[in-house]
Simulated scan of single mutants.
Amino acid sequence: SGRTPCPPSQESPPVQKSALVPYAHLPRAHHDRHVLTSTVDVFGVAHWLLGDEAPQPGGDVLPFDALVVSVHPGGHVELTELSAVRARWPRLDRLPDGGFVLAASRARRYEDADQVQVFDALGRETSSFSVGDAVEHLLVDEAGHVWVGHFDENPAGIRRWSTTGHIYWASDGASIPGLFDCYALNVSGTTAWACTYTDFPLVEIRPDRPVKVWTNRVRGAKAVAVHGERVAFYGGYGEEVDRLTHGELTETSVEPTAVGLLTLPDGRLPGRRRIVGRGSRIYVQTQPFTAWCVFDLSS
């Protein structure tokens, strides 16, 4: 007919979606309490810190008693009452001896001296100290040391503390490029992985050897998972908040291999969330913050 044939359709390939897998649930008997914070520890146990009411902005915080509900991978539930908690918006993690460490994310002027509280397995405070303002991440390792990553209102970056306030490692002088904000922190065993603003390198921190740094083109990730030479970054800026980027480690850089979305088990996008990185796993919790789901790079 002499007509020019139509070019083949250039439709973009469908976005690859990865669904989170249900991991742990707060028992229904405790749903009447307010979830102050929640985390998953280095051994895979999920913890909820519960109070009688939601924290209110402004005003003084009177010490209050709180309940930690711990749900083990097999489903066993433990309850620990913490006495005289002082943090309005706390970060929480469990210590290997069964105690807990709790930190206020913001250090207010009169509370700097005891911003971090350490509790024994019976819920009694045993020590307190300050790590400084702007706590973004608080993660305990298998040795019982406390890794703290700060957001940009505190230039301290990343530090590893003892439970009595001694600094075992600090990012000062560690040659991490452009460390103004610890966007992502993953603690597994006694190793930490981080992704930091402004350059977003992938950083491996082992207490007994020099820091390793890989350049990375993925911007704005809020969590990282690592398994052997494979890595995954979760999150990003703006519309990329649900992005899941897979990559491979070379000698000096992270090379992206695939980009998709991380969804809830039912396929919905998460909305407001908490995220914890532990080795090959990224744990995600969404409102009403009574359940944890998991993405595992090793599976």
Results as ranks from 00 to 15, higher is better:
V21F: 03
A24I: 03
A24E: 02
L26M: 08
L26A: 06
P27I: 07
P27H: 08
R28L: 09
R28T: 13
R28D: 13
A29I: 12
H30K: 11
H31G: 10
D32M: 09
D32W: 05
R33K: 14
L36I: 06
L36E: 07
S38V: 05
S38E: 11
T39F: 10
V40P: 02
D41Y: 03
V42G: 03
F43V: 09
G44W: 01
A46I: 01
W48N: 06
G51P: 09
D52K: 10
E53H: 13
E53R: 13
A54D: 13
P55S: 12
Q56Y: 00
Q56W: 01
Q56I: 12
D60P: 09
V61I: 13
L62A: 15
L62Y: 11
F64C: 09
F64G: 07
D65C: 09
L67H: 10
S70W: 04
V71R: 03
V71D: 04
H72G: 04
G74H: 12
G75V: 08
G75R: 05
G75A: 09
V77I: 14
E78Y: 00
E78F: 01
L79D: 14
L79M: 12
T80L: 14
E81S: 13
A84Q: 15
A87C: 09
R88C: 10
P90F: 08
P90T: 08
R91W: 06
L92D: 02
